[in-house]
Simulated scan of single mutants.
Amino acid sequence: MRINRVASLCLALLLAGCDQSAPEQKGFAGLGDQAAQFTPVVPGRVFSFPSDHGAHDGFRIEWWYVTANLKDPQGNDFGVQWTLFRSALKAMSQQPGWGNQTVWLGHAAVTSATAHHAAERYARGGVGQAGVNVAPFEAWIDDWRFASQAQDPLSDMQLSARDQSFAYQLHLTSSRPLVLQGDNGFSQKSEQGQASYYYSQPFFQASGTLQIDGQIYTVSGPAWLDREWSSQPLTANQTGWDWFSLHLDSGEHVMLYRMRQKDGAPYLTGTWITADGQAQTLRSEQIELVPQDTAKVAGRSMPVRWTIRIPDKQLDISLSALNPNAWMNLRIPYWEGPVRVSGSHGGRGYLEMTGY
């Protein structure tokens, strides 16, 4: 949702770790804090591309989030994650140099059935270490890159990251339209009105190479891009989320998220995406999302198998984690990894769980 990866999770409030005097954050990683000085998210925005692929000054948090479900020629399954977060320290137009009030955070990970590796990078804005350019499109932090030379960036992309235990270089292509989530891109996160602007490209096809623990694999498979920006996507009562992106073998796609609360029922919604890219918002009463088996991961009990029913779409499926130990042991830890889909529909996808 990434909320990317919500992403995965927004770095915004990693910044509590950059300032020892920062107050205790409210909601998951501070995402429920008041942000009155920043630009609010309101219904009715008219999106403009390619400019909306770039950064949005005035909003507090933002992310570019990619996941890929990959196979090698022998049928082995892998997952890849790449996320760039932008967090504004102040609501102002960003200046070049060290006076810049933006902090950038990168997350990258690879997962197989037996291994999971994650890494993070930090950068201050304004000095060239990280950022986003619109034309030609490039999002980067250090040598991690998500870039395109195409006039329509989302038609042809290059994605790369590396760390001590892993590396990947992927080529992503799509001829399908992107998808505006929620109400024409206005994605509500609570009954109180917290929201983000949110669009996706769920139709990417990826191919390239992946390296884990010194072993190199040739891989291919579907990939998913999430783009979100906001200033306060959670309430102080919300503790985290469970986010799903699913590539069904029928050609359809599903995005769901459940925003858990300290008190009361979770806020649940999603999107059903047809094979030709038509999107329909799913209301909570249309969705049955139930955690099933749990696993002990990093001292926490994590739901690594779920059932999902959407009767209106004749969907009745089980999701199981490719690797239950896909724990992102980073500054703000969370669970993120590929899942397998079985039942009325086959497929694969990604699951992110935060705030546990």
Rank of each mutant, 00 (worst) to 15 (best):
W335M: 01
Q164M: 06
S196C: 02
A130M: 07
A298V: 00
Q101P: 03
R348I: 03
Q129I: 06
S318D: 11
D312A: 14
S284C: 07
S148I: 12
D242I: 05
M255L: 13
D142A: 12
F38K: 13
S160T: 02
F137W: 08
R60A: 04
A12C: 11
W241V: 15
G208P: 01
D152A: 13
A161H: 00
Q34G: 11
A22L: 14
E138V: 03
A295F: 01
T67W: 02
G79A: 09
V179Y: 05
A123I: 08
A279R: 06
H247C: 03
Y197Q: 02
G58V: 08
G32K: 05
S165R: 04
T269V: 08
E120K: 03
Y198T: 12
F47W: 00
R309E: 10
F166R: 05
P73H: 11
R145Q: 11
G343F: 08
V110G: 09
A298Q: 08
L180F: 10
Q188L: 14
L315R: 11
A91H: 07
L319S: 06
Q169R: 04
E285Y: 14
L178C: 00
K189M: 14
Y198C: 00
F38D: 01
G251Y: 07
F186C: 10
Y122A: 08
V127E: 09
G79K: 15
L154F: 13
Q181T: 11
H56L: 00
R5K: 15
G349K: 04
T281Q: 06
A113T: 15
P291M: 06
C10F: 10
I287K: 01
L13N: 14
M1K: 15
L315W: 07
R227N: 02
N76V: 14
A119S: 08
L9R: 04
V339P: 07
R305C: 15
W335Y: 04
E288A: 14
M92H: 07
F186I: 04
A130P: 05
E336R: 13
H253R: 13
A55Q: 00
A147N: 04
P40G: 00
L31V: 00
L289S: 00
Q314P: 10
W140E: 06
Q129K: 09
D213P: 12
G349Q: 03
A321I: 01
L246C: 12
A298F: 02
Q215E: 11
P233I: 02
Q95L: 06
V134P: 03
M1E: 10
A118R: 03
Q101Y: 07
R260C: 08
I273R: 09
Q314H: 14
R340T: 11
D163A: 13
R227G: 10
S284T: 01
G343M: 02
S207L: 11
T102P: 02
P73C: 15
A275R: 12
A135G: 08
G347A: 05
M353S: 13
D57T: 04
Q314N: 14
F137V: 06
